[in-house]
């Protein structure tokens, strides 16, 4: 099913959806654009936020359960996630979700991830405005979304084309049909034109295909990259595919068991109890980060561990050119 929504009708649609579920969308906060709960703020589709909406599926910090002492025994309380509609996720991030689904879906199956995943409706936005650092098309992860979405938005001059990609998506379109208009063929032409333009922009950038990157990995100077690295962990915290976590219990006798994001860039991540560290230097840890994305994750899931969203480029505190694998010199 495919419909057209005039621009000025978007808030009305979101308000209606908001009655049933929490709507998450890219909104303006100060000069920035970030995904947050929509409570009527203006939507901003111009920029791809630095933090991927995958944080709603795999939060930075999540309470797994509460433990409470009760007459000498412990009782456990779990918290149910709220149902959400995530609007404006771009194709790169949807592809990242596909990788996460595989990773958390293999045994042992991660119940908690899928509890959030199942309660989220993904309203993806076809990408007509790639950021300067994007290279999704080189890895086949954008700018156009083909499948895996519940709803797919394409921004046009006067409104949005909305396609459904699942039964939930279709239901939503049917339920709010009074807001939509019929799709004219010029709209479809405009969609194609916008996407080809984005493709063109992306493809005109230096080639960052898998083979090219694999080649660069073979010759990279890990030691100098490590010497420049300021160990901020940013590249792992912004990556929509990075998913490592740590578990800790906070509070005695009552408290919470938390799952918190972790980072392989930190030396404590790989250091063992006796102090031995198989990835001792920052360079070795950076090397592992790349190989995880281009070798280990593909071996384990059949999918690339990078979708070319480019976030790790702009976040790097040492301004390394992450994908030509060069240190600033």
């Amino acid at each position: 099913m495919i419909v057209f929504l005039a621009k000025d009708k978007l808030p009305a649609l979101l308000s209606e959806l908001n009655e049933m579920l929490e709507v998450v969308a890219p909104v303006r906060i100060g000069n920035d654009t970030a995904f947050a709960t929509w409570v009527g703020q203006p939507i901003d589709f111009e920029k791809n936020p630095q933090i991927s909406p995958t944080e709603f599926l795999l939060p930075q910090r999540e309470v797994l359960f509460k433990y409470i002492q009760h007459s000498g025994r412990y009782v456990f309380e779990e918290v149910e996630p709220k149902s959400k509609l995530i609007l404006g996720m771009r194709p790169c991030d949807l592809n990242a979700v596909k990788v996460l689904d595989k990773i958390f879906g293999t045994e042992p199956f991660d119940k908690l991830y899928f509890r959030r995943r199942r309660s989220a409706i993904l309203a993806v936005l076809n990408c007509s405005k790639p950021e300067e650092t994007c290279f999704c098309s080189h890895l086949g992860a954008g700018p156009e979304c083909i499948d895996g979405f519940d709803l797919l938005f394409t921004e046009l001059d006067s409104g949005y084309l909305i396609e459904s990609g699942s039964s939930v998506g279709m239901l939503i379109l049917k339920e709010h049909s009074d807001l939509f208009q019929e799709v004219k063929s010029v709209y479809l032409a405009e969609k194609n034109e916008r996407i080809s333009k984005a493709k063109e922009t992306l493809n005109s950038r230096p080639n960052l295909s898998k083979d090219k990157i694999m080649g660069a990995l073979e010759t990279a100077d890990w030691e100098s990259m490590g010497n420049n690295c300021l160990s901020c962990g940013g590249c792992t915290f912004v990556c929509p595919i990075c998913h490592c976590f740590n578990i800790l219990d906070l509070g005695v006798p009552d408290g919470e068991r938390l799952r918190c994001r972790d980072s392989c860039i930190l030396s404590g991540f790989s250091r063992m109890a006796g102090g031995v560290n198989p990835r001792k230097s920052a360079g070795e840890r950076i090397r592992n980060w790349y190989f995880d994305k281009f070798q280990f994750i593909p071996e384990n899931t059949g999918l690339l561990g990078c979708v070319g969203c480019g976030r790790c480029i702009s976040v790097c505190l040492a301004s390394m050119d992450r994908w030509s694998l060069k240190v600033p010199r």
């Binding site: 000069n31 630095q50 944080e55 910090r61 999540e62 940013g234 915290f237 702009s314 976040v315 505190l317």
Partner: peptide, 16 residues
Amino acid sequence: VGVSPSPMHPMSKGRL
């Protein structure tokens, strides 16, 4: 539940 940088901050520019 989390922290993220502000990309438009005039000094830190989306880095922490």
